[in-house]
């Protein structure tokens, strides 16, 4: 335990904020920009499919112009890819267009629940790490897959709490606990964080960061909701660093079995 908040280190970069923001679903670029600012996030993910990858500064696909490259590390994502091949193709195009070698690897062939495909994700991660990408894979909360991705050279693992946009919080708690216990790379809990309390819970569990999008984007006041998540993440992290009291089922004021040892 230290008395100073620990920074988050992903690959070779340090971050003060442990809140990562997604940029989909906002009512406008301006509203998104103000939410990013209020969240204190330093790492921001953008769907490459929404961005202009043609290099022609397409004003009808200008989402990147709302994300200040001086303030934020850009984390392009491969949402829309249904297999490793599509994800790799999109990643390479994205690197050319954005200059970013960081990549949130997302492969969800099922457009309904957007659940990640473990097989294709591992395949793509192996290829992309070799090509020099800093890969942050979105995965189901599968501890063995997390280790396999770590072995493949991924910079983090990003297990889901519950399906994207579901706001159901951390339904995969038991598996995320194992992932955190075993991880040698940062664990980012991604998806399903519907309330600041969910984010705080993930941080208290020892997650290194959380990624939030929908809950902020569709809030009546995204800027204030971003502040709320920022505070929750900081609170949850502080509690984790300090060390939470262990839960007990009954009050235990005395030590009936070993108390005699303390008697004079």
């Amino acid at each position: 335990m230290t008395d100073k908040p620990q920074t988050l280190r992903i690959a070779n970069r340090d971050f003060n904020s442990r809140l990562i923001l997604g940029t989909g679903k906002f009512a406008s670029g301006e509203i998104m920009a103000s939410a990013l600012e209020a969240s204190g996030a330093e790492l921001v993910t953008v769907a490459l499919r929404r961005a202009d990858l043609s290099g022609q500064r397409d004003k009808f696909a200008n989402i990147l112009t709302f994300i200040d490259a001086k303030k934020y590390v850009l984390l392009p994502n491969t949402s829309g890819a249904r297999n490793a091949e599509e994800a790799c193709r999109l990643a390479r195009l994205g690197r050319e267009a954005t200059g970013s070698t960081w990549l949130k690897l997302e492969i969800h062939p099922d457009p309904r629940y957007l659940l990640p495909d473990a097989v294709e994700t591992l395949k793509a991660a192996e290829v992309l790490v070799n090509e020099g990408f800093t890969v942050l894979p979105y995965i189901n909360a599968d501890p063995v897959l997390a280790k396999r991705l770590e072995d493949a050279g991924c910079a983090t693992v990003m297990p889901l709490g519950s399906p994207i946009g579901s706001a159901r919080g951390i339904e995969t708690r038991a598996s995320i606990e194992i992932i955190i216990e075993q991880a040698t790379v940062p664990v980012v809990v991604d998806a399903g964080m519907g309330a600041p309390s969910h984010a705080a819970e993930a941080m208290e569990m020892g997650a290194d960061a959380v990624l939030v999008n929908t809950a902020i984007a569709i809030a009546a006041d995204p800027e204030r909701m971003a502040e709320a998540f920022k505070a929750a993440v900081a609170a949850g992290r502080a509690a984790y660093e300090i060390g939470l009291a262990v839960k007990r089922t009954e009050a235990e004021a005395t030590s009936p079995l070993t108390g005699f040892l303390n008697e004079p």
């Binding site: 009512a27 406008s28 929404r50 202009d52 990858l53 397409d58 009808f60 193709r89 999109l90």
Partner: peptide
């Protein structure tokens, strides 16, 4: 208060 989205896909995904 809706964002008009013109591009939400990428041709590279259709190759």
């Amino acid at each position: 208060k809706y964002e008009p989205v013109w591009k939400d896909w990428e041709g590279a995904l259709n190759e």
